[in-house]
Design a protein around this nucleic acid. Structure first.
Length: 453
RNA sequence: GAGAUUGUAGCUCAGUAGGUUAGAGCGUCGGAUUGUGGUUCCGAAGGUCGCGGGUUCGAGCCCCGUCUUUCUCCCCA
């Protein structure tokens, strides 16, 4: 007999955690629905042909792969065994766990394109799995909450994403956050202007670290990766505007020779104007050149949400991808979406103690009794309470009152009804307020009226 | 995937230079009032010292491997 244990990077969620997680899920779901998004669920398991090659080389390694059923090694030759096991994974594994919700969504859109009315807006709240090394705020199984629109390139979608993020975070009680926005076209333009066309990948990886390692180290890394000193010198204006909130004019003069960049700046500015049009009070959005996440498929806007004064990675990321369904043979469908990480939001709300206090209360009233007769009498009352819509339970065993009250106390049940011989005779039950200790003699109808107030 | 770090009762941790039966607090269970909780008092249960090897007369403590925790790189929610 061995001690049970959890798989690395996974967690159980006990009742009190689930209540809090549900609060987050409900808030997100409600907001997504309010913006006209429809629910979708896809399988945890996907064919590897769907998942592989969508997240870069790194991503392929981080995919959890499922061994084929039966004699999974049957197809292997002696020569295969001599190689690195990674070389023959395709021979022993055909399925894997989903890595994010965007690729399965793209697959769904392609497979159902005939029946979907475009633009199609869906939201999806499901777990995803990644085989990377766990750290704080980073798990191997975690939930993502995605909302995406496909079939339109209207920038209204981008603006609505900004609105949703503000709505969700504020409803959760978070106030000190920043919605960072960038545009892939601007990054492309920068690479162009400094004479490093096609190098934007390397460029982005480097400048993404700007706030972390500083200007000097970023430049050092670029040189190391083969950027010319001239190119690096051309980046000078970038460091100047890294701290500005919406430096569109500066960007225009710096990147005036790049049509792509100008297009990107136009797009950004329109998003700003649209959000203004919504009349959002106190917008917490900020342009951030260094934002270069999800490079593999974003083509327009790039989003990320940082919670200020909390040491944790971003709690949300997203952007526009013009050709996601292209890899499944359907080109020309533009999409834009956002993904929120519930597990990190949980950690943030916990750290800032922002969870509402009354969330822990699941049972509103408990019946306690002293013997079989009282318990039987209580069944009817219990049913009445539940019929009236009150969460109610009865202590199952005829044990000492002390134990029963102790149970109610620890479960934070706010009211207890005592049933004994006196109560059964008079028909007046004792309602005890567990917070104040106050007791009242009431009929079951009066109790319901009292609790429903 | 690379480097570092952690692992002792349900939880948080002690455990002295390797030496007899491994400790505390909290929690759990029972009792102090056979109809009154959150306070107090008494008592009890609970540990293959992550797991597997090795060194030693002797290992919780030293060595190796493995799993796990946390952190940095990488990448990301």
């Amino acid at each position: 007999m061995s001690k049970p244990s959890l798989a690395r990077g996974t967690r159980d969620f006990g009742p009190e955690q689930m209540v809090k997680r549900t609060f987050i899920f409900d808030t997100i779901r409600r907001t997504f629905q309010r913006f006209g998004f429809q629910p979708l669920e896809t399988p945890a398991i996907e064919n590897l042909s769907v998942l592989m090659g969508k997240y870069g080389e790194e991503g392929d390694q981080l995919l959890f792969k499922i061994l084929n059923s039966g004699d999974y090694a049957a197809k292997l030759t002696e020569a295969d065994w001599q190689q690195d096991a990674r070389q023959f994974t395709t021979k022993i594994s055909e399925k894997g766990l989903r890595y994010d919700l965007t690729v399965p969504f793209a697959r769904y859109v392609v497979m159902n394109r005939g029946t979907l009315s475009m633009p199609f807006k869906r939201y999806q709240l499901q777990p995803v799995w990644r085989a990377d090394r766990p750290q704080k705020g980073r798990y191997r199984e975690f939930y993502q909450c995605d909302a995406d629109v496909v079939g339109t390139s209207s920038l209204l979608c981008e603006a609505e994403i900004v609105m949703m993020l503000h709505g969700i975070l504020r409803e959760l009680g978070l106030t000190d956050f920043t919605v960072k926005i960038n545009n892939r076209k601007i990054l492309t333009g920068i690479a162009e202007v400094i004479g490093a066309q096609g190098q934007e990948g390397t460029l982005c990886v480097a400048i993404d670290k700007l706030d972390k390692i500083g200007k000097e180290k970023v430049l050092a890394e670029l040189i190391e990766r083969g950027f010319s000193p001239e190119s690096c010198a051309g980046l000078e204006p970038l460091f100047a505007l890294a701290s500005e909130q919406a430096p569109f004019a500066e960007l225009r003069s710096w990147l005036a020779t790049s049509d792509v960049a100008l297009k990107g700046i136009d797009e950004l500015e329109e998003v700003w104007q649209l959000v203004e049009g919504f009349g959002l009070e106190n917008p917490q959005m900020q342009f951030d050149v260094t934002l270069a996440r999800g490079l593999s498929y974003y083509t327009g806007a790039i989003f990320e949400v940082k919670v200020n004064n909390v040491q944790i990675g971003s709690i949300s990321g997203g952007g526009r991808y013009d050709n996601l369904t292209g890899t499944f043979g359907v080109p020309g469908l533009s999409g834009v979406g956002i993904s929120l990480g519930v597990d990190r939001i949980y950690d943030v709300l916990e750290e800032l103690s922002l969870f509402p206090d009354d969330q822990a209360i699941t049972t509103r009233v408990m019946l306690s009794h002293f013997d079989a007769a009282a318990a039987r009498y209580g069944l009817k009352v219990l049913h009445q309470l539940r019929q009236a819509g009150l969460n109610a339970e009865m202590y199952p065993d005829a044990v000492k009152l002390k134990k029963q009250l102790d149970y109610a106390d620890r479960k934070r049940i706010p009211y207890v009804v005592l049933i004994g011989s006196e109560e059964m005779q008079s028909g007046k039950l004792t309602l005890k307020n567990m917070q104040t200790g106050e007791q009242k003699s009431l009929t079951s109808e009066e109790i319901i009226a009292e609790l429903k107030r």
